[in-house]
Amino acid sequence: MSMHRRSPLSGQPRLARALVFTAAATTALGITFGGAAQAAPHAPADPSKQEIRAQVDQLYEEAERASERFNAAEERQRRLQSEAEGLQNQVAAAQEELNRLRTDLGAVAAAQYRAGGIDPAVALMLDSDPAGYLSRARSLDQAAERQSATVRQVIDRQLRLDQRRAETVARLSELEDARRALAESKQQIQQRLDQAQRLLNTLGTAERVRMATEDAKEAEWRATRGTDRLDLGDLPASSDRAATALAAAVSRIGSPYVYGSTGPRTFDCSGLMYWSWRQAGVTLPRTSQAQMYAGRRVSLSEARPGDLVIFFRDMHHVGMYAGGGVVVHAPHPGARVRYESVNAMPVAGVVRV
């Protein structure tokens, strides 16, 4: 099988080589693959094996959904941790300033107390140095003004400090919630992967090899529309940055899917998009759901190479449009980065970054 593009992407690997590598690597892991809307013609499998395949596919899809929840919780935890640390620093600085103001206020109040024991007129008559007394009195008046201003500052700083403390408590509470969500998502992922592996372990090695090889053939059949070569067309990328991001994504074909990973050797679906666009100098949101809003929405018919293609109603999967109705993506747990027909999954939206 050959790959054809009238305006080839520099450094793009041949699909046949990528698929052979993917099949061989997947076989070595003894794992299977995700479902597809279109299936390549092949000999019918034993019904029990078809049932196992369907169950494994479902478990992998559930694991991927949990993986995107994991990514969202992890990103939220990082943001809240940073906010909480910032607020704690603000609280410490505000408390230090408040302590200083209170010390100044105490010094002024003590001076006023020492000077305020008798009537000012009597004090003037009795003082051996009237001019000095008047000078000191003026200083005390100025001190009183400073005291009043300091009192107002103390009240203002105390209110701000109380507010920062309340915000800190709220952020720390949210942070704890995010940590629990992170642990729960991680547990859900591992449970689904463990269940899938137990199902696969009921098959013999030869059957797992057959299923892995079949996975690669079906992906090839969908991407090439049943021909012997991949035609990505000659539509240019939407921008130079999009071309750079696409080249980065294509360079990762054959890399394993690992949940929560953003490369450079392993990826989950949104992690591949995140890493690829970082190579173009653009920082995307971490999750497929957030990536849906990372740029301008366009229709699928307007898709250009480098655009993000979000799949499924809950937007739990994302790939990058490569041209010719094909995306490059990290498919699911147990699979590797590869080309896929854009019609293999229901499209929720196309985003131009």
Rank of each mutant, 00 (worst) to 15 (best):
R157Q: 09
S2V: 10
E220T: 11
F311L: 05
F70P: 02
A242P: 04
E75D: 15
R265N: 13
A149P: 01
Q187G: 15
S7D: 15
A348Q: 05
P346V: 07
D231E: 09
A84Y: 07
T266D: 11
L199D: 05
A94T: 14
S341E: 01
T213C: 02
A290L: 12
G324C: 06
L134G: 01
L300R: 07
V342T: 09
D119V: 07
A212M: 09
S48V: 08
R278P: 00
M3A: 13
A290Q: 14
R102D: 05
E145D: 11
L235Y: 03
R304Q: 15
E83S: 13
A237D: 04
E62D: 14
V122D: 13
T266S: 15
A121I: 12
D240W: 03
R78I: 09
E74A: 14
Q197I: 03
R146H: 12
A121V: 12
R180A: 15
P130T: 08
G263F: 04
M345Y: 03
R65N: 07
E62M: 10
G106I: 02
T150M: 05
V56P: 01
D307M: 09
G306Q: 08
L172M: 13
T22L: 11
G233S: 03
P256R: 07
L172Y: 06
R14G: 14
H42M: 10
R252I: 04
R225I: 01
L140M: 14
T266E: 13
S139K: 11
G334H: 07
R17K: 06
A247T: 12
D268H: 00
P264W: 07
V337S: 04
V151E: 06
D215H: 14
L87K: 09
A303T: 09
F21L: 13
A322Y: 04
L140I: 08
Q38R: 15
E218R: 14
E96G: 10
A290K: 06
A330L: 02
D141C: 05
L98D: 12
G325R: 04
E51M: 08
A294I: 04
E184I: 09
V327M: 06
V20R: 11
V154Q: 08
P333V: 12
G117V: 13
P13F: 05
F311H: 02
R136M: 10
M345D: 05
D104G: 02
Y257D: 04
S67Y: 00
E214I: 10
N201D: 15
D215C: 05
A294T: 06
R138K: 08
E62Y: 07
E176K: 14
T262A: 11
S173V: 10
A28V: 13
A84V: 02
E61S: 14
L80I: 07
A107M: 03
R241E: 15
V56K: 07
M292L: 12
Q112K: 08
A28Q: 15
F33M: 12
A166W: 01
L272A: 04
F311V: 08
R164G: 01
R252K: 15
A24H: 12
A107C: 00
Q95C: 03
R5L: 06
T103M: 01
N71W: 00
V326H: 01
E184P: 02
P41N: 03
W277N: 00
T32F: 12
Q158C: 02
V326G: 05
V347Q: 00
C269G: 01
E85Y: 04
A121F: 09
G226H: 01
S139Y: 06
A63I: 04
